[in-house]
Nucleic acid binder design. Structure first.
Length: 983
RNA sequence: GCCGGGAUGGCGGAAUUGGUAGACGCACGGGACUCAAAAUCCCGCGGUGGCAACACCAUGAGAGUUCGAUUCUCUCUCCCGGCACCA
């Protein structure tokens, strides 16, 4: 046995052993309980970063632990290989994205291998392989047939830097999620996936995911954004006649009851009659373009690309945001596509949505978004209003600070009729009303909505109180100052005619019923979630399998022609989509009529790729079907591990995609990930200087020396020139901030085991980790000690292994060895408990404690030492230690397990469980408190009853001193723990 | 503003259902070994007072429940994440 711990040598040997024996090859074993552990696959950006190392170590620890616990484990790995960085790199280096991507994959794979992860590489896949993305295309076509994919022109988020369309979810604070550039609006035809059809199910099923962190479920629920309220309308007549009466016929519900359809009855929690639901596709097919949105189950051979103009019936309501296709608009703006579709007419209904129908009697105005058709109508002969509207539109494009801007508005001169009182209500345009949410118009109730209140104060609109607080401390209503209770749902109606005295719920019910009776509104559910626009005007992605034919329109590529293969030799130059410049790609014949046609050059959002890769891992070699029966064995994923930054996008799309595949009969499960562990982000200090031209220059923390200044502020200087740099706080490791730490340096220097151990030991997996390598030496020291201890005991342990029956352990042994053995088992018990909590840092601690106690026994065995007992405890303890460590530090465990003759392969060893008998003591120590303060401890027999314990404790001198003659009121005895004397 | 999570030594963090606060490690101080250094090993290490035994204080702040609170309840402060003129 090597005298010195040489990680690089033993790690290479262990990895060769695993490779040669196919140790991590997963096989379906019906009847054996499986454990599918998956870490989010990486984008092949070039090399692993610290977050990857953390992520994959967590996954590997869980995989190896459950394997030793007897589960049939699967841990696959793949590559999220399509995406923009490959194109950017291609532009910078004139290398085709494919070449760049495959080279990165090769290098990162070697890095993952050097870390010793128990990955089944036979299942490796990359999403840029035709064998993978052909199924993106295939499912796309199935969804098209089902009406779950549709094409629509709309306003999109346009990233001017990447020159691509972004999904709503990819817009953060009005900026592109990758580039940070301000997003602009553009009208563009694109394909959508109807995730809103599953909104109800995606929301309801969150309750059935006990293995998910609450914060992720909350974020998804907020994102889906269900709100209950009432949708109603104000009739108007601009023709110069009287305002329309209240007996106008209500347009048929199909044009406005735009609830996303839930899934089948079993998933629905409300028990609402399915027949009463009006689905999105039914709606869209009547409104926007019936050829475009075939009913589910139909199989159109063509699709038309442009919506037909809607009929503008006199009493049609404005389009609701569903049909306006708010999904493609950026939040806080959008809807321009809608205004072209809808002309405000002389007579009509102004629709609004409210969650506070109980305040409807307090309406004193209505406010329109700048993009609202009625606003455009009013501006027709009002230049000042037109100018104001233009200003609002411009402002709303460019705002991250929209939330802080002043509330501004302008009257339209239009008057509408209150649906219940028949009173005239003035209509304003307000810059705080969003076209993309709800109806693009709101009722104004200044007394009971804070925004309306300030708006009314500013423009002198009446404020009419209709709710009174029920609590005495609320204070009187005054129009001088806003008070939070004005918005409370706990009041009762006043000044509201027949509704006086009703509480929130009764009032909403009564008012909704009256509106419905008049045909002017009803209860409605509104969702924040929008459909998922998947078209990208980029090269490096899955080609959308559509052919454009002059005669036949948009024709789906027949299944027999799949995959539509992406040429891999393109080098994008930054101008437009390189695919459009490839005649060999674009030119084709129409599958329907055989005439020359052109291929769609848009590609799919890369979130499509990652929405189902975890299913494909079950059967990556399936060439004839997207998935096969093996998916039923492995799925759902038992444990998914990945960054919290994917809490919404990827995880929500995956849940949607799984349901789509289920509804197409491809799989039978509902939810893809049974348990989710969201690992915290890895952060580091940020240092920079501002150069003369105002540009920021970032310095890697490794180049900076930080010292604590006298005033508590940290002063930092650049090591190279000794001059100060500014501290920019702490942020995620990123290229742009130049604050990354390359894990390869750590691995090269210390080896995989030490890097892995340190990562697990330094903080719990879900916590944010501010990078510091201060503790790495401690991890290295520990593993060196493990090695040295094993080396020292090598001969005697080998001897023991050859003669295992010489001595058996006996309960009641009073040697020091018994104490040590108790500690070993107590720590083992604790560690096993901690595995259930994913608390790997304390598992590492437990391993350290076990080594500490074994070393102590070895150094000072105690006067009555029996050599056989002594060796028994060392042998057993080290066996526990090596197995406990093996998920975290597999290489050293593998090596020592063999060296010390514990067995052939530690992977095959059973997971250690503690021996309850080892924990039993004849005498136990109890903490003694007087009035809750610790005053000492006593040893009592294990089976002493409380009366005996009381006697012993009260006789204790320290207790006597603190009781000091006062009468003892009572004595609390917590068995096995403590005694508290109350005086 | 709303929703979620958090605040414990110089640092990372521990404390399972309310039961010895600070495990384990880092850093630091002292010692052993060494010609010396590295490595290794031993001892110490929340604060205040005290030679000491020991006492008092201490888990962001304040209150409450309890024999006993880092843990439960309420109020507040600050930090992190998410959402947001959402009607």
């Amino acid at each position: 046995m090597q005298q010195k711990y040489n990680p690089h040598v033993i790690e290479r040997e262990a990895q060769q052993y695993w490779d040669a024996s196919g140790a991590f090859r997963a096989r379906e074993a019906p009847g054996k309980r499986k454990y599918y552990c998956l870490s989010m696959f990486p984008y092949p950006s070039g090399k692993l970063h610290m977050g990857h190392v953390r992520n994959y170590t967590i996954g590997d620890v869980l995989t190896r632990y459950h394997r030793m616990k007897g589960r049939n484990v699967l841990q696959p790995m793949g590559w999220d290989a399509f995406g923009l960085p490959a194109e950017n790199a291609a532009m910078a280096n004139s290398v085709p994205p494919a070449k760049w991507t495959y080279e990165n994959i090769a290098y990162m794979k070697s890095q993952l291998k050097s870390l010793g992860f128990a990955i089944d590489w036979s299942r490796e896949l990359a999403t840029c392989q035709p064998g993978y993305y052909r199924w993106n295309q295939w499912l796309f076509l199935r969804m098209l047939e089902k009406g779950l994919v549709y094409k629509k022109t709309g306003v999109v988020n346009w990233d001017p830097v990447d020159r691509t369309v972004l999904a709503n979810e990819q817009v953060i604070d009005g900026r592109g999620w990758r580039t940070g550039a301000m997003v602009q609006k553009r009208a563009i035809p694109m394909y959508y996936m109807a995730i809103t059809r599953y909104a109800e199910a995606l929301l309801a099923a969150l309750d059935k995911l006990p293995g998910w962190p609450d914060r992720v479920k909350t974020m998804q629920a907020n994102w889906i954004g269900k709100s209950h309220g009432v949708r109603f309308c104000f009739p108007y007549d601009l023709s110069g006649g009287k305002a329309a009466g209240t007996n106008l016929p209500l347009p048929q519900p199909s044009s406005h009851a735009l609830l996303p359809k839930g899934e089948g009855a079993p998933e629905r929690g409300t028990g609402a009659p399915v027949s009463g639901d009006v689905t999105v596709e039914a709606h869209v097919s009547t409104r926007a373009n019936s050829a475009l949105h075939p009913a589910p189950g139909s199989h159109p051979s063509t699709i038309r690309s442009e919506p037909a103009p809607p009929s503008a019936g006199a009493l049609e309501p404005p389009l609701s945001f569903w049909e306006r296709g708010g999904g493609e608009g950026s939040r806080g703006a959008g809807g321009e596509g809608g205004s072209s579709e809808t002309q405000a007419t002389e007579k009509g209904l102004l629709w609004v949505f409210t969650t506070r129908a109980d305040t409807i009697m307090g309406v004193t105005f209505a406010a329109l978004a700048a993009e609202h058709p009625l606003a455009a109508r009013a501006a027709r002969d009002n230049p000042k209003l037109a100018a104001f509207i233009e200003e609002c539109k411009r402002g709303s494009v460019m705002e991250a600070d929209l939330a802080t801007i002043e509330k501004r508005g302008m009257p339209t001169g239009i008057s509408i009729t209150h649906p219940l009182t028949g009173q005239p209500v003035p209509v304003w345009v307000g810059n705080y009303v969003l076209m993309a949410y709800g109806e693009g118009a709101v009722m104004g109730v200044p007394a009971h909505d804070e925004r309306d209140f300030h708006f009314a104060k500013q423009y002198g609109l009446p404020i009419r109180q209709v709710i009174n607080a029920q609590t005495a401390d609320a204070g009187a209503f005054t129009t001088d100052q806003w008070q939070p209770w004005y918005e409370s749902k706990n009041g009762v109606c006043i000044n509201s005619g027949k509704y006086n005295g009703l509480g929130y719920h009764e009032a909403v019910e009564a008012i909704a019923a009256d509106l419905k009776a008049k045909g002017l509104g009803e209860k409605q559910v509104l969702w924040r979630l929008r459909d998922w626009g998947i078209s990208r005007q980029r090269y490096w992605g899955t080609p959308i399998p559509i052919i454009h034919c002059q005669g036949c329109g948009d024709v789906p590529v027949p299944d027999r022609d799949l995959p539509v293969v992406l040429p891999e030799d393109c080098v994008p130059d930054g101008t437009g989509n390189p695919l459009a410049k490839r005649p060999d790609f674009v030119n084709c014949t129409c599958p329907k009529c055989g005439k020359p046609a052109s291929r769609e050059t848009d590609t799919m959002d890369t979130f499509v790729d990652s929405s189902w890769y975890y299913i494909r891992f079950a059967c990556p070699d399936s060439t004839r079907t997207m998935v096969d029966g093996r998916a039923e064995y492995w799925l759902p994923v038992d444990q998914y591990v990945g960054g919290i930054e994917h809490a919404i996008l990827h995880l929500l799309y995956s849940r949607f995609w799984t349901r789509v595949m289920r509804d197409l009969g491809l799989i039978t499960f509902d939810e893809p990930f049974a348990n989710l562990l969201t690992q915290g982000m890895v952060l580091n200090e940020i240092y920079f200087r501002r150069s003369d031209n105002g540009r920021m220059v970032y310095y890697n923390p490794a180049e900076v020396e930080a010292k604590a200044g006298e005033d508590g502020n940290r002063d930092a200087i650049l090591k190279a020139d000794g001059q100060p740099v500014e501290a920019g706080g702490i942020g995620t490791m990123s290229k742009s901030k130049n604050n990354g730490v390359d894990p390869q340096e750590l691995i090269d220097r210390y080896g995989a085991d030490i890097a892995r151990f340190f990562m697990m030991f330094t903080s719990p997996p879900e916590d944010t980790l501010v990078w510091s390598d201060a503790g790495v030496e401690g991890a290295a020291r520990f593993l060196r000690r493990v090695w040295a201890f094993a080396e020292r005991k090598n001969e005697v342990l080998k001897w023991w292994s050859a003669n295992p029956t010489l001595v058996r352990w006996e309960v009641g042994n009073t040697e020091k060895a018994a104490t040590v053995r108790r500690e070993v088992h107590a720590n083992l018990k604790q560690a096993n408990y901690d595995f259930g909590k994913f608390q790997f840092n304390t598992i590492a601690s437990a391993a350290m404690k076990i080594l500490n106690t074994l070393e102590d026994l070895d150094r000072s065995p105690g006067p009555e030492a029996n050599v056989n007992v002594h060796v028994f405890v060392l042998h057993e303890g080290l066996g526990v230690l090596l197995r406990l460590l093996s998920p975290i530090t597999p290489h050293i465990s593998h090596c020592l397990w063999r060296e010390l003759r514990y067995g052939e392969d530690v992977l095959a060893a059973p997971w250690p469980e503690h021996d309850p008998a080892a924990l039993i003591e004849d005498e136990i120590e109890l903490v003694v408190q007087v009035n809750g303060k610790k005053r000492g401890d006593v040893r009592v027999p294990r089976d002493a009853d409380s009366r005996a314990i009381e006697r012993i404790v009260l006789a204790d001198p320290a207790v006597q001193r603190h009781v000091n003659g006062q009468p003892v009121k009572k004595v609390v005895v917590v068995p096995g723990r403590l005694v508290n004397v109350v005086v």
